[in-house]
Design a protein around this nucleic acid. Structure first.
Length: 944
RNA sequence: GGGUGCUUAGCUCAGCGGUAGAGCGUCGCCCUUACAAGGCGGUGGUCGUAGGUUCGAUCCCUACAGCACCCACCA
């Protein structure tokens, strides 16, 4: 083995071998265990969030596979409608073309071509982090099988009356030219103004003042509303107002929606461009007037002079004209929330358009069939409420249920080209025909179409196909094998439905609504099953200071740069490449040069994964600190070197892993006991998804127990005279190492495999890969509490000596005499048993007992129970310093004793506390008193 | 407005009713034959504030303060 751990060489080798051997595919034995990869966008590249989330999934999958489960990690990518279409449109823009120049077919062909060329970047990057996923079953949301599922779901829901087409007010992105769902709209706080405008009554006798942040929409006003109980305006209700700048007259209406105390208490009503106003318009049968075109310019419903103006230009014009008319009463600064499209940053314009919706809100349809709330929403709500689906951490279920309780119908049509085209056709009379294709649509029609049929131009929301992921990837709805474009079988519902429900969904909280809830709805409806039993909501990865990672801040990290390392200049280049604003560029460059003056060191995949595990508590965010990762690379190196030691000294133990008898030494029986405990803990932490505790348990075991104590204790055993002890120790070194490699494999697969290959032959193991080994079962290991007590004693003795050495400044290399006094028969026996270990590890001469009443030289002392461990002072130790040290120690123990006495002296404590707590407290005080006695005796001796 | 978190060592975080922990940092001694990416030893905390429950509170309850995030929003 190399002297230190070099991740690069190891990683490239093992992943290929694993994948080629078919180790990532379901094994056919054991109970099914499935995890669905949240399909990343084909356009995407791997970021820290992916790397973290995928590490979590990979740990679970590898663990369950070792436990013998029939494990499937279902992977694939999402076509990501808007995002992908935008990328290709941007490419066209460089050629000064639009998608319309190409036409629909040519454009889509171009997107497919782009997808084939660069669409698999992210899946290749996934391999770098070691994802043991079944690539042979990789799917794409627009492949043939999944598209068939989309069509069937659309058609079935349509025929069940659960999908409808309607002219509704929707969130319209004027830049992208499509509707978007409520979820795809964010609110952004902007500095704006509040303008107050005077509207005169038709008779010119009176007026009202309305306030608005969007004065241009007055061109579409259909009323002014006041509160029904507002006495100021009661006499005006029913009268009409002259709408300024237009020749229209609009009524004053009364509606509860209006807040009497806000502003003037008068609200202008623009149903076509505001969701609240739309509702009011409906209540009062006021037909909406749309005043914008789909690209947000004023349309022909407005007066001539504003037509064709962009909405913001129209605002200026309207304000100027109102000002000129003396109708602008007030202008004041106002912070407002502006709805912004997540995908384009364009300000959303509510628009009346024809769209397709999934009914999620009606209880019963006109014809008596169940409505969407009953058929789709309620079952999804029940699944979580009744505990069939469990969120981890649990409180996310509140988020989920509250959203479903207040859900709106889902707008599923998008005015895009890239996506699943809606399987609906219109005849010349506007009748709708839905079916697999035009023929099917005609066939299933109840009325004969008028003239030719024309397919709906729109595509479905990306999340529509994502919602089907839990069952569409398994082959639904086909009744036979589903093949990919290369003719390979990727799924077969008849066999694969055993993987539904999957075990756990690992995903971010940000897509609970977009994806999680919709998967539950669709899967419940179409298969009658829940899609997954648990939802583990993973934390969001932030930078070391807890800031959100963003390119414009320059605090993003590319997981591959952490794995491979990157020099400063390439890092600067890469981080600033896509930044167009010079000031931002300069700021980012400065930050990177400050944060990474030497670039980023290569820490390797294993250390990165271990870091993710160690950070994955139930906390909502994890702050990724590269220092932490470097620490875990050191851990990998530690493991590596421990293995080197074992292999160098271990030789061939002469017997296989199964046929060891009782280990010969206490140290072996102790480390096996600790291994057993560690394995049980790790198993629990897997169940509760506490990867931080899991990583910590393994870290502590390897470093603080196996390396710090067992390896050190093994040295005198291996070099001693007792051949049986040496052979047994050699064997136990190997057995514990091999077990811990198995336990660590789900977290750090590469290094454990590499080391295991060296260890396996020594234990006559015949598997070709660590991946084929079973999970180490804690139940197979025998615990030995007596041995554990012996080793705890030993550690106390040794720590005592080390402390003296360190505090008295005795050179670590110097061998010193060691005397023992007092103690009991047990101490005698232990000293005899561990004499070689004590001498070796404490760097002392062979321990000498001072018999009772014997001559005792001035010495520094450590106390273990009644045993005094003495380092003679002569020439080594300053008497005054030792006295001070003892006094400090005595003082510390006296404080502890006083605390115990305080408790035990409290009658209420003794009366009310559980008996074992009282007993424990009595034991503690007894122990402290023993130690204190020995220390005082020592202090007396020194005094003489 | 509704909801959900968080506040513990210099930093990042575990612990969540009975002796305050880890990693990193920091200080001291050591290149001891697995590992200086290391070894050994140390320093460092009135567990956000104020009440309450309890024999006992960092942990449970209440209020308050500060910091995040999600949802819905008054024109």
């Amino acid at each position: 083995m190399e002297k230190s751990f070099e991740p690069a060489q190891i990683e490239s080798k093992w992943y290929q071998r694993w994948e080629a051997s078919g180790a990532f595919q379901p094994s056919g034995k054991g109970a099914p265990y499935c995890i669905l990869l949240p399909p990343p966008n084909v356009t995407g590249t791997l970021h820290m969030g992916h790397a973290f989330q995928q590490t979590v999934m990979d740990m679970l999958v590898r663990y369950q596979r070792m436990r013998g489960m029939n494990t499937l990690w279902q992977v694939g990518t999402d076509h990501a409608g808007i995002a992908t279409q935008k990328i290709v449109e941007n490419q066209l823009a460089v050629e000064e073309k639009t998608r319309h120049d190409l036409g629909r077919d040519a454009f889509i062909e171009r997107v497919w071509k782009w997808k084939e060329e660069s669409g698999s970047t992210i899946t290749h990057q996934m391999r770098r982090i070691g994802a043991a996923a079944d690539w042979s079953r990789e799917r794409f949301t627009m492949d043939e099988g999944l598209s068939a599922a989309v069509r069937k779901v659309f058609i079935d829901w349509y025929r069940a009356g659960l999908i409808y087409r309607g002219n509704r007010l929707v969130n319209w992105d004027p830049l992208l030219g499509t509707a978007v769902s409520d979820l795809e709209v964010n609110n952004a706080e902007r500095d704006g103004h509040m303008w107050s405008i005077r509207y005169m009554t038709t008779d010119g006798a009176e007026s009202v003042v309305v306030a608005t942040t969007r004065p241009e929409t007055m061109l579409g006003d259909v009323a002014v509303a006041v509160h029904p109980e507002d006495e100021r305006y009661a006499h005006l209700v029913g009268k009409t107002l002259k709408l300024p700048l237009t020749d229209r007259e609009i009524p004053v209406i009364a509606d509860d929606y209006v807040d009497k105390d806000f502003g003037t208490g008068c609200v202008k009503i623009t149903p076509a461009h505001d969701f609240n106003d739309y509702a009011i318009g409906q209540r009062h049968q006021l037909p909406p007037i749309t005043i914008f075109t789909l690209d947000a310019k004023v349309n022909d419903n407005a007066p001539q002079k504003y037509r064709g103006l962009d909405r913001y230009d129209a605002r200026k014009a309207v304000l100027a004209d109102l000002e000129a008319l003396g109708r602008l009463v007030e202008t004041k600064a106002h912070k407002l929330q502006v709805p912004v499209s997540q995908r384009s940053d364009a300000v959303i314009e509510p628009m009346l358009t024809d769209q397709w919706f999934v009914d999620l809100t009606s209880d019963v349809q006109a014809d008596g069939r169940p409505g969407g709330r009953k058929a789709i929403t309620q079952p999804a709500l029940d699944a979580v409420r009744n505990g069939e689906i469990k969120f981890v951490p649990e409180n996310w279920s509140t988020t989920y249920t509250q959203w479903l309780d207040n859900i709106q119908d889902w707008c599923i049509s998008r005015q895009l080209w890239w996506g699943h085209r809606i399987p609906a056709w219109y005849d010349e009379a506007g009748n709708i025909f839905v079916g697999e294709d035009e023929t099917d649509a005609r066939k299933s029609a109840t009325t004969a179409p008028v003239g030719a049929l024309r397919q709906d131009e729109d595509v479905l929301d990306t999340w529509f196909s994502s919602a089907l992921w839990p069952f569409s990837t398994l082959g639904w709805p086909a009744d036979g094998p589903v093949k990919n474009e290369r003719g390979e079988i990727v799924a077969n519902w008849a066999d694969d439905k055993i993987f539904l429900p999957s075990a756990v969904l690992v995903t971010g909280f940000d897509i609970i609504f977009f994806w999680v809830a919709r998967m539950v709805m669709a899967t419940k409806y179409f298969t009658g099953q829940i899609p997954f039993r648990e939802v583990y909501i993973n934390a969001i990865v932030r930078d070391a200071e807890g800031q959100k990672m963003s390119k414009s801040k320059g605090n993003t990290l590319d997981p591959l740069d952490l794995i491979d390392g990157i020099a400063l200049e390439p890092l600067v280049e890469k981080s600033t490449r896509s930044l167009l604003i010079p000031q931002v560029r300069a700021k980012v460059e400065k930050r990177i040069r400050k944060d990474y003056p030497d670039g980023i060191p290569a820490i390797g995949t294993d250390a990165l994964r271990f870091t993710f595990a160690a950070l994955a508590s139930y906390s909502r965010t994890i702050n990724f600190d590269i220092k932490r990762a470097e620490g875990y690379k050191a851990f990998c190196n530690k493991l590596w070197n421990a293995a080197r030691f074992v292999l160098m000294n271990g030789g061939d133990s002469g017997f296989g892993i199964g046929d060891s008898g009782k280990p010969a030494t206490e140290a072996e029986r102790w480390i096996l006991t600790r291994l057993k405990q560690t394995l049980s803990e790790v198993e629990q932490h897997f169940v509760s998804y506490r990867f931080d505790l899991l990583a910590q348990a393994l870290y502590e075991f390897v470093w603080n127990e196996y390396c710090d104590w067992f390896l050190e204790l093994s040295k005198p055993a291996l070099n001693g005279d007792d051949d049986a002890a040496a052979a047994s120790t050699r064997h136990t070194l190997l057995v514990v190492l091999e077990s811990v490699l198995r336990a660590l494999h789900p977290v750090i697969p590469f290094i454990t495999e590499e080391i295991w290959q060296g260890v396996a032959p020594k234990l006559d193991l015949t598997e070709s890969s660590l991946m084929q080994r079973p999970w180490p079962n804690a139940d197979d290991i025998v615990a030995d509490d007596a041995a554990t007590a012996e080793i705890e004693w030993f550690k106390n003795v040794l720590s005592g000596v080390r402390k003296i050495r360190s505090e008295m400044n005795i050179s670590p290399g110097k061998t010193i005499p060691l005397l023992l006094a007092d103690g009991d028969a047990g101490d005698r026996a232990r000293v005899a048993k561990f004499a070689a270990q004590i001498a070796f590890l404490a760097r002392t001469e062979a321990p000498q007992w001072i018999e009772a009443g014997g001559e005792e030289p001035a010495a520094a002392a450590a106390v273990v129970g009644t045993l005094r461990v003495l380092i003679p002072l002569a020439g080594l130790i300053d008497l005054g310093a030792e006295k001070a040290r003892l006094a400090k120690e005595i003082g510390r123990i006296e404080v502890e004793i006083r605390k115990c006495e305080g408790k035990l002296g409290n009658a209420n404590f003794v009366a009310n506390a559980p008996a074992e707590v009282v007993a424990q407290e009595r034991q503690r005080i007894a122990d402290w008193n023993t130690t204190l006695g020995a220390l005082r005796e020592q202090a007396d001796k020194l005094q003489k």
